[in-house]
Design a protein around this nucleic acid. Structure first.
Lengths: 214, 214
DNA sequence: TCAACAATACCGACTGGTTGGTATTATGTC
DNA sequence: GACATAATACCAACCAGTCGGTATTGTTGA
């Protein structure tokens, strides 16, 4: 008897299938333009299943943001940029990693919660706050390494903090995603990350990296 | 006989009233969540007027992006950051100006075409391209000053160009808008601009600015 | 071990309201 | 009266959400 495959829906996984569908469809079409039927079709479930697991479309939006926070934090926890002994090397490895995972498919590398926050910031506070928690929660995971790098490299920030710089990483990434979408060109996101790399090296008094051709 | 006021609609201005309404409503609710009736109500016109001037909702989206491009380019042409004699001073004055115009009302200072591009990048190429033309058209207006600053300050960019740095200005601004929305706090956009200011000063070998408290 | 029951998961037809868009008519201007 | 502009009335498609019902899984007690 063959084990059930992932594409063959199995009883009990409708909720997670819907969340995965939401992650993919909303990044492509946006939240408002995505219908409940779109999500059901993409997940291979019916409307009954949808409203069994989520009391409204907005509730799915919140759950999708939370799902994104969980899955991405696991993904980044397991990523190799934590390996270097030197904290600044870890910070630069994070930036290099973020550059590497920019693929050719725009919806595949852009940020669900950035999209959600942009779209619903004034109309659906619960979704906005869940999206914000994901973004700022992730930036907080960078603060310790930045703080350690400041100490290890013996620099004295003029008027910025580890927390502020960590948030700026997200700023540049989110902005890079917008430009990539506007220009329909993933290279624009890569350019953004290259400038971020250069900024951090300048802040810490390092030589510029060689590999970039912005 | 009193002159007609702006709030009293006059024959012939339905189109521009709709474009102004689109600018304000779409920045708040997003494009997909904004209905044609929303726009008619905000503009004080009827549906007949809407579809007289725009053959579809998407056509209005394109026109709104073009309207944004026109009005913002006029706004920035008339702004005082062009006054300094030194080109790098003009570049830094641009950044300072962008910081100044960040108000407390998020929809009032965020970017219509960034919102549009994010939302419709994969579903409405005409709107996306009109939005992209606005963003990249604006960044191109900065290139001459950056280029002149490179020459005047006799620096040799390691692997960046004036065009790439000009685009990065838009990256940081767009990203700052996303974080401001996600955190529901305009200060997050101001922090982004402060980091951009610091980056440019570092690139050109200047001392950090004093006034910031990021 | 197994019936009896309960809880959970899921299905899909249906509904009431909304949406983008159209057809027709009215009005002001040259 | 010809033309652009704009108001009214209307429509078919679509939307989020409901509801009655079924299938599967879990629990309980003898």
């Amino acid at each position: 008897m063959p084990r059930p495959t992932k594409s063959q829906p199995e009883r009990g996984d409708a909720r997670s299938r819907l969340l995965e569908a939401a992650r993919d469809v909303i990044r492509t079409k946006g939240f408002a333009a995505t219908t409940v039927d779109d999500l059901c079709k993409a997940a291979g479930v019916t409307k009954g299943a949808f409203f069994h697991h989520f009391k409204s479309k907005d509730a799915l939006g919140v759950a999708a943001a939370e799902f994104w926070a969980e899955t991405t934090s696991q993904f980044f926890e397991g990523a190799p940029y934590h390996l270097p002994d030197d904290p600044l090397d870890r910070v630069l490895a994070y930036i290099a990693f973020r550059r590497e995972i920019i693929s050719d498919d725009i919806p595949a590398f852009t940020c669900l919660v950035g999209t959600l926050a942009q779209e619903v910031h004034a109309t659906a506070p619960e979704i906005r706050d869940a999206a914000g928690a994901s973004i700022f929660g992730h930036s907080e995971t960078l603060e310790a390494d930045i703080e350690a790098a400041i100490k290890a490299r013996e620099i004295t920030p003029d008027s910025w903090s580890a927390a502020s710089l960590a948030r700026h990483f997200q700023t540049v990434l989110q902005g890079g995603f917008i430009l990539a979408k506007a220009g329909n060109d993933p290279d624009l996101a890569r350019d953004a990350v290259d400038h971020l790399d250069r900024y951090v090296r300048l802040l810490f008094g390092l030589e510029p990296s060689k590999g970039e051709t912005t």
